[in-house]
Computed example of a mutant assay.
Amino acid sequence: MTAHNWIDLSQDTDTGIETLRAHFEGHAYDPHWHDSYLIGVTEQGVQQFNCRRTRHDSVPGQVFLVEPGELHDGDAPTADGFTYHMLYLDPHWLTREVSTVFEEAPVDSQLSFVSTLADDPRLAFATSQAFQTLHRGELRIVRQRAMDQLLERLTGHLHWRTRYGDDPRLPQVAHKAREYLHAHLHHDVGMHELALACGVDRFRLSRAFKSAFGLPPHAYLVQLRLARARHLLAKGEQPADVAIALGFADQSHMGRWFMRAYGLTPAAYRRRCSNLPDR
């Protein structure tokens, strides 16, 4: 991270919701995804990112909304960079909370954002208020009220959609490979092994997988491991132990990928989420 870039990250003890405020100039993030719902507001500058196979330019006051598993990156196209604040909402928490507002969810469905960018001043205000109360550690009743107000505004930008399953538009081999990677997250999976499990050659597999999910298999596996690393680090586990447990070559290898995806080192992330000292 350059001297002009900074990240301020915290985690709410009651809900586990992470709050982040950051500033970037130039390149911010490599393509990556989260297992949380992201909702944030651009404060200053232009935040440029690719998501849902479309390039977006978020300007001050706009709300950006990214679902779990959606591949996205981040860049500053102007010299002054961009500043934003954001909340990471756990999918189980969000589903439980909005179920009190929505009708009962249809069978085999999940929450989805209507659009990636929203020009909704009241949603932007509610997002900023929720961010401030959680990030500053206000009284519990104040934090809960702010989150309720955010949910009230957010429901207008949510809908139930069919849970992702086997999409007939995508090659079956890509789905099979993804399932294999999820099942063998901790293993040193090779392309030959993966292709053998899917019954195709590795060149066809690579093309089908990247076409379906936007990343080649090896990069997708890294993203799986990074998402799991965030959970383990937030619980206070040491970076070196996490790297070994998740199949990275060593701590520095995990650290390089972690920094490219999230803008923080694993140790810094652990420290800010767990409030535990480094060993």
Rank of each mutant, 00 (worst) to 15 (best):
Y37R: 04
H187N: 05
E104F: 09
P277F: 05
Q11F: 11
V142K: 08
A208I: 04
L87M: 14
A126T: 10
G137T: 12
D80S: 11
I7K: 09
R122W: 13
D201L: 03
L181P: 01
H34F: 12
E179W: 03
K176N: 12
E104T: 15
V114Q: 10
I7Q: 13
L94V: 14
D30C: 01
A268G: 04
Q251M: 09
Y29T: 01
P121Y: 14
V98Q: 02
A105Y: 10
Q144W: 06
V107N: 08
S252Q: 15
E43M: 05
G137R: 08
A234S: 15
P106D: 01
K210L: 03
Q47T: 06
S252M: 12
P77G: 05
R270Y: 03
Q44A: 05
M86R: 07
G263N: 11
R145F: 13
A197V: 14
G165P: 13
A3P: 10
D166K: 01
A118E: 00
R163I: 03
H231K: 10
A183E: 14
G190A: 15
M1A: 14
Q238W: 15
V222S: 04
R202H: 12
S36G: 03
V66D: 00
S274L: 09
D188K: 07
L150H: 02
N50Y: 07
A118T: 01
D12H: 15
L181I: 04
D14L: 14
H192C: 01
Q149F: 12
R178I: 01
L170C: 03
V142F: 08
Q110N: 11
T54N: 05
H159E: 15
T100R: 12
H92K: 12
C273W: 13
K210R: 12
T83E: 00
H253N: 15
L181F: 04
P91H: 04
Y164R: 08
H92S: 11
D250I: 07
M254G: 06
G45T: 03
R228P: 05
